[in-house]
């Protein structure tokens, strides 16, 4: 396997970061839990896990990570966000708390808890563009994308209670986000897609370094 230029950071302020670290481990990739700015040194990509986006947003402030993460995103570092991670990586949160941070890695507007409360959380097989076999998706108080900008590729959608389909997997350049939790079911293909954008980035960097 092609080596990465550094470990993959997994934001570990709150949520299911452990499962992401396990998936990356299964793919043979070194992961590093990120809680303070020095943990970001040399990371080749970053995973923003599921959890509570309001909690993570506050902890981004207190830990001093907000600025460095925003720089990372601006620099085009590959990022993967699941559920709350999608919310934090979006450019707009429709029903966020005032002052909730957005990293703006993708030009999308998301709605939190879009399916309803926990009793409406569900699992289902979802077709994802580019994958032959559907993904077994677990939606936990999941967000959806209400608006996706022209640069955004929509890779999967699901129908909502109003019968209208909305995006649940989106990609824009080096940023990939899902409403659901591939990390909870041993699904590795979305992480592999994220890793391949790190590898193409790595190749560019290595060429530049020559």
């Amino acid at each position: 396997m092609e080596a990465l230029n550094g470990p993959v950071g997994v934001l570990a302020l709150q949520g299911d970061f452990r499962e992401h670290i396990e998936v990356l481990g299964r793919l043979g990739v070194r992961a590093r839990a990120v809680r303070v700015p020095r943990d970001l040194e040399g990371v080749s990509g970053l995973v923003v896990p599921g959890g509570e986006s309001t909690t993570m947003s506050l902890l981004l402030d207190s830990s001093g990570l907000l600025g460095p993460l925003a720089e990372l995103v601006t620099a085009g570092t590959p990022v993967l966000g699941t559920c709350a991670g999608m919310v934090l990586l979006a450019s707009e949160v429709l029903d966020g708390k005032p002052g909730q941070h957005r990293l703006g890695a993708l030009d999308i507007a998301v709605r939190r808890n879009a399916f309803g409360r926990q009793r409406d959380s569900f699992e289902a097989d979802i077709a994802v563009s580019g994958l032959d076999v559907p993904v077994h998706a677990v939606f936990i108080r999941a967000p959806v994308v209400e608006r996706a900008g022209p640069e955004v590729e929509v890779l999967a959608e699901v129908a909502m209670a109003d019968g209208v389909k909305r995006p649940v997997v989106c990609r824009q350049g080096p940023a990939l986000v899902t409403s659901f939790h591939p990390e909870l079911v041993g699904e590795t293909r979305l992480h592999e897609a994220f890793l391949s954008s790190i590898r193409s980035q790595t190749r560019k960097e290595n060429v530049r370094a020559l």
Partner: peptide
């Protein structure tokens, strides 16, 4: 993607995975 009709088609609520899933997010 799953097409229109009943939004709940093919979706399973209240499974062990879905129940544990929320606890996992609270970690």
């Amino acid at each position: 993607a799953p097409t229109g009709g009943a939004p709940a088609a093919g979706r399973r609520t209240g499974t062990g995975l879905v129940k544990r899933g929320l606890a996992t997010q609270l970690r």
